[in-house]
Write a protein that binds this DNA or RNA. Structure first.
Length: 500
RNA sequence: GCGGGUGUAGCUCAAUUGGUUAGAGCGCCGGCCUGUCACGCCGGAGGUUGAGAGUUCAAGUCUCUUCACUCGCGCCA
């Protein structure tokens, strides 16, 4: 007992089992990750992980109970599913009965839950495992758990409301209080003000467009940028003159590695003294405009990027995030939860030279933008929404297309051939023809939600048996080779040499 | 696929400019002590310095290759 105030007088002692010497002490947390993962069952005994696993359970239970109370039905969908090679790489499972054919593990139950809507299920949810064979990050595991939900005859508002309900319930279960209604920001505003579609609003540092104030200067970079329809964006860093040369250089490196040509600085040394490469190019009037628009005062620094908006905003966004680290702007007790809405429907893939879906190809275009699909795809907004927590994308959803003609228009723009469409999604298009109701939904990453609620730095802390960055399991040593007989039954041959 | 960090005893770490037999704490083993509660005392075992190659009279230390863990970029509809 931690207090040491209770003394136990034993009357007998029976040893049920004895333990080998543990490879590491269990009363601290100092070991390297590989040791801990190899003996995960010992690591899991420690309070740090015990708490996380318990909290995760409570969060999932609260969400499940909430959705149940709202009339949602939990329905399981197959794990052995069909490969639809758009999007993330699939994990494949060979079929013994149909040699040479493969199941795919689901990246999400997207199509099946939509088919449940066609099937007359009004309200569906599932706490389900999803699989994506992509490279890992601290916040990305190859298999992860979603709280997946879908509602028929629902619009965006219905989904946001239900989500605020069950996410709120889950967070409350983890001891986190959030507003009943989460603040919203459009994708456009998020990009223009914070340079990210998942801005961390635990700190401010928003951008100001100063293009108008520097339209007429002799500064070549500005003129070239503006002539090419670019923008001059700045972020004011209060007290930023305390940044060291080294720190400012690092911010410049981040801007450049994000595609910007450089990062201009203006130091507000005193009331009438600025230090900047720009001082000799700008008039007093122009400076006054900038001072007023940014609100910069003595001790501040302005960081400026001139480029196309598509480059300037995200680059400055990366600078913004680094600034938060450098200046320690984030209060770890804060919890920022926001909706980001109105994502663009399409993004242009420069490599493949074609339009791709920003969210997924079943996302409904904004009703006002449907006429723009073929003429100006870049201007089409979607009925989609992300839930962003502390700068992480926690959930993502959309209103779906429930009309097979509209769905085919989208596929056409994505340059999917008739044959491809039929092979991959034929069953789905067909289903939409049988009176599919309007429907909408969302999926939230339970692992990430738990990680954020528990303020852990890695998903590994909220998953009982996580994988390493190379997607291996150090405890079981998966993945491993299989024996000849297994391959033979599947009529598979290994083409690569051992060790790869 | 690419860039950064780490890798020395079971665990956490140290080892000056390349220089004697690679050390310490904890743990482990043996003994002593027996009102302990991070017990204490005495003694002991334990290392291919992740692996391989190279430079050198001499490599934990320098160079190259490679592996593992990790953070990020690409990737993640």
């Amino acid at each position: 007992m931690p207090t040491g105030r209770i003394e136990v007088h034993a009357t007998g002692l029976e040893i049920l089992n004895s333990s080998a010497t543990p490879p590491f002490p269990l009363d601290d947390e100092e070991e390297s990750d590989d040791t801990r993962l190899t003996y995960r069952y010992l690591d899991l005994r420690r309070p740090h992980l015990q708490n996380a696993i318990q909290t995760r359970h409570k969060m999932a239970l609260a969400a499940r109970n909430y959705l149940d109370s709202q009339g949602f039905l939990e329905i399981e969908t197959p794990i052995l599913a069909k490969s639809t090679p758009e999007g993330a790489r699939d994990y494949l499972v060979p079929s013994r009965v149909h040699p040479g054919n493969f199941y795919a593990l689901p990246q999400s139950p997207q199509l099946l839950k939509q088919l449940l809507m066609v099937a007359g299920t009004d309200k569906y949810f599932q706490i389900c495992r999803c699989f994506r064979d992509e490279d890992l990050r601290a916040d990305r595991q190859p298999e992860f758990t979603q709280i997946d939900m879908e509602m028929s005859f629902a619009d965006q508002e219905d989904i946001l409301k239900i989500t605020e309900g069950f996410v709120g319930a889950a967070l409350n279960a983890a001891g986190i209080e959030v507003e009943e209604i989460f603040p919203r920001i459009t994708y456009k505003d998020a990009m223009e003000k914070y340079g990210s579609d998942k801005p961390d609003l635990r700190f401010d540092l928003h951008f100001v467009d100063i293009s108008d104030f520097v339209a007429e200067t002799d500064f070549n970079a500005f003129n070239v940028t503006l002539a090419n329809n670019g923008v001059i964006k700045t972020v004011r860093v209060p007290g930023g003159t305390s940044l060291t040369r080294k720190q400012i250089d690092k911010l410049g490196d981040i801007a450049r590695s994000s595609g910007a040509k450089g990062l201009l600085t203006v130091k507000y040394l005193s009331e009438n003294k600025k230090q900047s490469p720009l001082t000799k190019f700008l008039s007093e009037e122009q400076w006054n405009g900038i001072d007023k628009a940014t609100g910069a005062i003595e001790g501040d620094i302005l960081l400026i990027i001139a480029d196309k908006a598509l480059i300037a905003n995200p680059a400055l966004g990366n600078v913004r995030n680094e600034l938060a680290q450098m200046l320690n702007l984030i209060n770890q007790n804060d919890f920022s939860i926001i909706w980001v809405t109105d994502f663009p429907l399409f993004a242009f893939d420069e490599n493949e030279q074609r339009w791709t879906s920003e969210h997924h190809p079943f996302t409904s275009p904004h009703p006002d933008d449907i006429d723009l699909i073929e003429s100006s795809p870049e201007r089409v907004r979607s009925c989609s929404y992300d839930l962003v927590i502390n700068g992480f994308e926690a959930a993502s959803g959309s209103v779906r297309i429930h009309n097979s003609e509209l769905q085919e228009r989208i596929f056409n723009l994505l340059k999917l051939s008739e044959t491809e469409i039929n092979e991959r999604f034929g069953f789905f298009i067909n289903a939409l023809k049988f009176g599919a109701p309007p429907h909408a939904g969302l999926a939230i990453g339970l692992d990430r939600l738990a990680m954020l609620a528990l303020k852990r730095a890695s998903l590994r802390d909220v998953i009982a048996f996580p994988k390493t960055q190379k997607a291996t399991d150090l405890m079981t040593e998966a993945p491993t080779g299989v024996n000849e007989n297994q391959l033979k039954e599947l009529e598979l041959k290994i083409a690569v040499t051992e060790g790869n």
